[in-house]
């Protein structure tokens, strides 16, 4: 199981608490993870990436295993510790706005 940590506004939107667990078939990429996340929680469509272009929203960042994966290709493989469920995939709202 892959574990995803959503930021507080998206936890309220999905009515979830803590980490979300997802089944994602190999090979696990950021795109496949976000597809699985939106399939389980359709209300998240458009909240982390543009629905038409699939481009990440400007104030959303992705982190895992101490790395900033925000600008990585959505088709790159995710770190093995994320795939193994040892480390969570973090969706983070950027600190912006003062």
């Amino acid at each position: 199981m892959i574990r995803v940590q959503l930021p507080a506004p998206l936890r309220r939107l999905t009515k979830t608490e803590g980490l979300v667990e997802l089944e994602v078939t190999a090979p696990v990429t950021q795109r496949k993870l976000l597809d699985a996340l939106e399939l389980r929680f359709p209300m998240l469509r458009g909240t982390t990436r543009n629905q038409q272009t699939q481009k990440r929203r400007a104030y959303v960042r992705f982190f895992a295993c101490g790395e900033d994966l925000s600008d990585a290709s959505p088709d790159d493989l995710l770190p093995q510790d994320v795939v193994a469920g040892k480390e969570p995939f973090l969706v983070v709202g950027a600190l912006a706005g003062g």
Binding site: P7, P9, L10, L13, M43, G46, T47, T48, R57, Y59, V60, G93, A94, A96, G97
Partner: peptide
């Protein structure tokens, strides 16, 4: 809406 997370 949200500048971070778009339109709901």
């Amino acid at each position: 809406t949200s500048s971070w997370f778009g339109q709901v």
